[in-house]
Design a protein around this nucleic acid. Structure first.
Lengths: 160, 160
DNA sequence: TAGTCAGTTCGGAAACAATAGAACCAAACA
DNA sequence: TGTTTGGTTCTATTGTTTCCGAACTGACTA
């Protein structure tokens, strides 16, 4: 019933999703542009895109594409492959990489934990309202750290 | 051994932490200013601060304090109380409010889930690299949603 | 009624981030 | 050797936040 959809229609809808990805720009903070590139590499049926194709399809400048691609590669969310006898690089999403996101998350949590622990140490009265609040914070931070550990165990994120 | 610390020294250290909070500005995105205010209300021994005290201690303009306090109240991270015969409002941190943070998190995850699900629907070949990647994403998003549920159950975040 | 107190609101300056444009460069090719 | 291809790098330009100052307001007070 839903499969009477032409390839062209499908691609249009996919492109819409790419724009949406740009808007909810993504996986823990990025630019609209990086969201759109990730969307393109991820949502279309085509699996690999050259630099030029990205420029053409998303209508963004070469310079922006260049810097954004490099950021995305640095943060391990995309990669490129090459084919013998072809100078072009073919970009594609890297599979299974919520890793980086999780690691930033963990770092953030740890920094926050440290500050709060230090603050608690300095409290004159540990039963004060604010001190108790800090303790509650610390407890929930511990919870989230444990969840992250479990996540990493369960999904056993790929090693190099 | 560590308790031979004068009140003055303690306060200085606490103030340092306030500045740090400003820097890692906080609880899921806020300004340096809101971080510092949260730090002040949270890390010092004094439990309640008036508008003026905040202005004086943090050396930020009245206007900035005003808008920031209102934002923090809107997002439920601080509150104020009043005393009979006193026009001033006394601001203090609201206890136990990672709630809002968690809720934004959940919303974010859900939006992300929706886009990815839609993208998966549109895929011609569900066994393609990128389609499989989307499936993996969805699986981990499901995991995190479950963790959030568990968190809310475990910490049973306070109702009004 | 004027004056103070406890803030709020309104512009705008300063700082920062995102994108573009144009010049550049290195590898391959003719 | 010069030219094309596939990008990169280096300033602008533009847009967005963050924060401040100054003028304003509304409740109370003398």
């Amino acid at each position: 019933m839903q499969d009477i959809i032409t390839d062209k229609e499908r691609e249009e809808k996919q492109s819409e999703l790419v724009e949406i990805m740009g808007r909810i720009s993504c996986r823990g903070g990025g630019t609209a542009l990086s969201g759109r590139i990730l969307g393109l590499l991820s949502f279309l049926d085509q699996e690999e895109f050259t630099f030029e194709e990205i420029v053409d399809r998303l209508k963004i400048s070469k310079s922006s594409v260049s810097t954004t691609l490099n950021h995305l590669m640095e943060s391990d969310r995309i990669e490129y492959i090459t084919y013998p006898g072809d100078r072009k690089r073919y970009f594609r999403i890297k599979v299974n990489t919520p890793k980086t996101f999780i690691q930033t998350m963990r770092k953030y949590i740890e920094r926050f934990e440290n500050v709060n622990r230090a603050a608690l140490e300095l409290k004159k009265d540990r039963n004060s309202r604010s001190a108790k609040n800090i303790q509650a914070m610390l407890k929930s931070l511990t919870f989230w750290k444990a969840q992250i550990d479990e996540y990493e165990k369960e999904f056993n994120i790929d090693e190099l």
